[in-house]
Simulated assay, not measured.
Amino acid sequence: MRRTGTTRRSALTATGALALGAVLTGCGSDEDSGGQQGNASADARAAAARAQTALRAAAARASSSLLARYDEVVTAHPATAAGLAPLRSAVQEHTSALGGPPKGTARPAPTAPATGAKAALQALAAEERRVADAHTQTLLTAEPELARLLASVAAAGAAHAYLLTELAKESSS
């Protein structure tokens, strides 16, 4: 005698047929929208590349600004030139590694701070810390290669800040 109504076997068969239909329909719709997905993927990659370029340019601007600050201090206090030369050289290399200052950006002419050498070195150390912190924040959203570079530059900036603080302690004015 045959049972009437829904059996477990017929329910499983119906569910399997529906699932198979959904899979086949899904495969067909992927083929139809493949071009749209390809365009969206290309757009996303282009947007990510633009974002990375913008991050690199911002980091280069910050390093270029720091380099200008070194020049200001050396111009205002020539006695600090020997102590700042290796640090300034490293900052210049960091700026180059980040792509240099953005095209069309003129570096401001150095202005002589009205403070003494000690205060100027302390201000330069504070600027090094600020730029190192900015690089550290930027590396959180950067791609791996740029993040490694920014981490290295930020670590060097922190070391520079320490050295500048020590140099300021040794300074007479």
Rank of each mutant, 00 (worst) to 15 (best):
A109S: 06
L124E: 10
R69G: 03
A49E: 12
T7I: 05
R129K: 01
R3T: 01
E170F: 08
E166A: 13
A14Y: 02
L55P: 06
A14P: 04
V153H: 05
P86H: 04
T111H: 15
A76N: 07
T136S: 15
L87T: 00
P110K: 09
N39W: 15
P101I: 14
A168P: 02
S96A: 14
A97H: 11
T53L: 13
A158Y: 09
R129A: 03
P113S: 13
R130H: 05
G157H: 04
A79W: 07
G100V: 05
G5R: 06
T138W: 15
Y70N: 04
G104R: 11
E127H: 14
L167A: 12
A82I: 01
A51D: 09
G100K: 05
H77I: 00
A58I: 04
T80A: 12
E170S: 12
S96K: 10
A125W: 04
H94N: 02
A59E: 06
P86D: 01
D71Y: 04
Q92F: 00
L12D: 01
G34W: 14
A76S: 01
E127C: 09
H135K: 12
A44V: 03
A134W: 05
D133W: 01
A156S: 05
G34E: 15
N39K: 10
S89F: 01
L124A: 01
Q92A: 08
E72R: 10
A117S: 12
Q137P: 13
G28W: 10
L164P: 05
A17K: 06
E166F: 10
A62S: 15
A40M: 08
A59K: 14
A112D: 11
L146M: 07
T7S: 04
S89E: 02
R88W: 06
T75G: 07
A125T: 04
A44S: 06
A119H: 11
P113M: 10
T7Y: 00
L167Y: 08
L24M: 11
